Amino acid sequence: MRRGIYLLEEVDFRPMNSRRPMEYLTWLTRYKREDESRRQPALTEGMSIRSREIDLVGAFYAVGITGHPQFKAVTLWDCHGGWDGGWRQMMEIYRGVDDRLFLSDIDDLRFSAYSRPLGAVAGSPAPAALAAEGYAAEFYLFESARVRPGAALDYLEAVRTERAPILAEHGHRLAGLFEVLFCDTEAVTVWGMSLDSHLAVQRAHDAALGLDDEVPADDRLPAWRERARDFLDGPWRETVLAPFPGSKLALDGGVKGT
């Protein structure tokens, strides 16, 4: 079995115009639905690479109040076939620097975009398999962690074996464990959750710190934070993503997850 290869992209829109991320996500999800029936990849004017092997498995609007810049979109792309599949197709469009690379239907809509190539690790769920299963969630928890050089795989294994069972008891489902490629200092995890399970985790954590006496405490939650520091070497952040209507892993396209 080949390693799953993904691309995570964070897109900012300026000046602050709340309609721009909606226009972008609507455009993106529409044309990627059309690509599902394509037989061969093609470099097209205005939309760059068109391919069913470069699969938009997640399209999200970032919940700004959780720490994102306001009006931000996040997309997760699955390179079907791994390095020799969708990744090769994306790389091939740079051969010769074709002028179609510089033409886009969304020119001037985005302010900036930051892409990170991701490699799935052992035990990671495949987002495409979750979508095929019909799984979807109200929200997704997105974690980016800077780890000690070389510690990403160990950190992600600890997340899988130690943290995932705890969060599962609080209604969170693991949706991806990823090493950020071409560097050795960053890891990304993705979890599906309901709003109620998100709030329950926050309150159980507060209770474990003695800051909420109305709900049961879960001491394992702050204990994990301590455990994670065995691997971390810089910023660690969790933020929340809302799946865009009509996209894969959104509730209107699947069944409610637990």
Rank of each mutant, 00 (worst) to 15 (best):
T239C: 10
D196C: 03
W87I: 14
V188E: 01
D55S: 10
F182A: 11
S124Y: 05
Y31P: 00
L211I: 02
R227W: 05
A132H: 10
L28W: 10
G86T: 04
H68F: 15
Y155P: 01
T26V: 06
E92T: 15
R30W: 08
P127M: 07
M47Y: 09
A175H: 00
D107K: 10
E53S: 14
E143H: 12
N17P: 00
Y140N: 03
L195D: 13
M16Y: 09
A208D: 02
A128R: 15
L209K: 06
S115H: 15
H80I: 15
Y135M: 11
R163N: 10
R14L: 13
R163C: 03
R116M: 10
P243Q: 05
R203T: 00
A175R: 00
L153G: 14
D213C: 03
T185M: 08
R160Q: 10
E238Q: 06
D233T: 02
F142M: 07
F102C: 09
R237G: 08
I49F: 03
G150I: 02
W236F: 15
R52S: 11
C183K: 11
P216W: 01
R39P: 04
P15S: 05
K248Y: 06
T29A: 03
L56P: 02
L156C: 08
L174V: 08
D212G: 05
V57C: 09
M193F: 06
H205F: 14
G134F: 09
V240T: 08
G123F: 13
F142Y: 15
A128F: 00
A228E: 12
V11N: 02
W191L: 03
G176I: 00
T185F: 10
S48A: 11
S124F: 04
G123N: 09
R38M: 13
G4I: 02
L156V: 08
P69E: 08
A217W: 04
H80A: 12
Y140S: 03
E34G: 01
